[in-house]
Write a protein that binds this DNA or RNA. Structure first.
Length: 92
DNA sequence: GCTCTGACGATTT
DNA sequence: GAAATCGCCAGAG
């Protein structure tokens, strides 16, 4: 199984209403410092429906990017009950 | 098979 | 504390 396959598996296992950092996904995928590659893979595949990639956020609390637009990503996250302030996720 | 790209991350200024 | 810089990796051209 390639690295990207592992990434998809990790993202798919994120429960609704929860978020995971790119670094964490990368770690599960096999490389804890491949966070950059993780985002790159999701972007190129842009499987917004197959995988809930909108639950993947940055380590600094920012939402990060999204193939369908960061705005849409924030919208989706808020829809799942997450609190976002100025593009930053509030973990309670 | 080499080079560029990019939804990141930690450090330094 | 915010902004810029360097470093990292895997995919695609």
């Amino acid at each position: 199984m390639g690295f990207k396959e592992k990434v998809f598996s990790a993202v798919k296992m994120i429960p609704k209403g929860e978020t995971m950092t790119y670094g964490k996904v990368a770690e599960i995928a096999g490389n804890s410092m491949a966070a950059r590659a993780v985002g790159n893979i999701l972007n190129k595949n842009k499987n917004l429906i197959i995988v809930p990639c909108h639950r993947v956020v940055r380590s600094d609390g920012r939402v990060g990017g999204y193939a369908g637009g960061t705005k849409k990503k924030i919208k989706l996250l808020k829809s799942e009950g997450l609190e976002i302030k100025s593009g930053k996720i509030i973990l309670t």
